[in-house]
Design a binder for these strands. Structure first.
Lengths: 246, 246
DNA sequence: CGCTATTTTGAGATGGCTCAAGCTATGTGG
DNA sequence: CCACATAGCTTGAGCCATCTCAAAATAGCG
């Protein structure tokens, strides 16, 4: 067998394989087909019949949805160990979203057939999938609430914090967001426009909350961002500038 | 055994019991405990440890979520045959939302323990739950997109159409929304304020798209509403009044 | 080393929110 | 059966957060 482009040990720890031993994981992974793509390439496109459930094994994948009018939002960013694309499979519906690689990525793909067989052999898999979906639902519901009730600055702050948890790497000055996202993409994750994101980031950069260079973001002051996300300090911190936090 | 306040035959058709025969449904239902509540009563409250998965057997239940600042939104309205409250159970987390009866309602409740046992005995149950969650996720993701990209009028129109599908009853003039929702509640479902909802409904009433009497809504012209939801006709139909479509 | 995509910034427009008042169904007690 | 109380609804006026559009600045890329 040729060397696989993923480590079973690494993937064995992921949510999908919770409670399954290494051997089972190995077998399950062996049933899947590995798919590698380059930056910008598409795993599945919204509207296509959905054929597979994917497990990301390397890279970053953004899941987007466009409306009929062409407005596009980013539903989530997938990192290694997370699944995607499977919802359409599970309920046999055209794929509700597009999955595009943000960087060179690979994923293991299982067809509906294979999945059903695997569900039989490893009932735990169904249970895990159920829990993953429950988690996602909970998360998306929270975002729905945020989008309904919070102002843009809060939502952008939350987006950055979420990205930090997802793909943050400690560096000396703070937390580097280890993915290249444009202002527009940040906007699509926060429910706003690239202009507003740009303005907010500029402001926050002046306040030393974040550092940004085209696509490379560093969170310098997590607490400050959290404060923004929770709207402590009211609308606009009347006397901002050199903040009183000292 | 005393008569149950639900009909097995009726519930047997619901998504949770897909693919299970009447006998199995019967057994599963027998494991649960029936809970009846009056209008305004609460099944579970956000933040409590979640103890049960519920299957609504009669009535209407609204699922709401409040933010720390006290802003409340309605995530969905549950009708007979639908489950609720279980997500916390499935992932053992405090209940992420409140479930309040919009009218006298009843539901069958299973504890975590019972559920786990049932999952063993009826693997199909897990698969069904998985599919239900996948559906909900898909729906909520669409709403996230709508909330991000559409204007208020579209979203309110969509809310009405959604309610019509959920609880619409054909009457001579059109489709009666068979649930008492206040302007405020419609607003909480659409991500806006009660004032804006009120204004929109007034306008639509003049245009004979809907009829409304305190809490009783009738959709008179579904196509018109769909057009609004999809934003055909642009921002404001410059020369509205007697529209040019006639 | 110029080209192009991305980002920044400004200026202006506006949709929808806020708040204040008045209105009206609906239910209640006399 | 009617007058009153009350919760819910409507409407107006003003405001402001955010969007839109235009143009200039910048950073990467080939």
């Amino acid at each position: 067998m040729p060397p696989q482009p993923f480590s079973v040990d690494e993937l064995a720890g992921c949510a999908l394989f919770q409670g399954l031993d290494r051997e089972a994981c190995s077998k399950i992974l062996a049933c899947g087909k590995v798919r590698r793509v380059r930056r910008r390439e598409i795993f599945v496109r919204q509207g296509e019949p959905s054929q597979s459930l994917f497990l990301c094994s390397a890279g970053r994948v953004k899941i987007t949805q466009v409306s009929e009018e062409g407005a596009e939002i980013i539903l989530r960013v997938i990192t290694p160990g997370q699944i995607f694309g499977g919802f359409g499979v599970l309920i046999e519906t055209p794929c509700p979203a597009t999955a595009e690689a943000l960087e060179a990525s690979s994923a293991v793909a299982w067809s509906i057939r294979q999945l059903e067989e695997l569900f039989e052999r490893f009932p735990r898999l169904t249970a895990n999938l159920m829990r993953i979906l429950a988690h996602r639902l909970r998360e998306v519901e929270s975002r729905l609430r945020e989008l309904s009730t919070e102002r843009v600055s809060q939502r952008v702050a939350r987006t950055l914090l979420r990205l930090a948890r997802l793909a943050g790497r400690r560096v000396e000055q703070g937390v580097l967001l280890d993915l290249k996202l444009s202002r527009e993409e940040l906007a699509q994750m926060s429910g706003t426009t690239l202009f507003t994101v740009s303005r907010l980031l500029s402001e926050w950069q002046h306040r030393d909350l974040v550092g940004s260079r085209r696509g490379r973001l560093v969170i310098l002051n997590t607490h400050g961002l959290v404060a923004l996300a929770e709207d402590l300090g009211g609308r606009d911190t009347p006397e901002s500038g050199t903040a009183a936090t000292g």
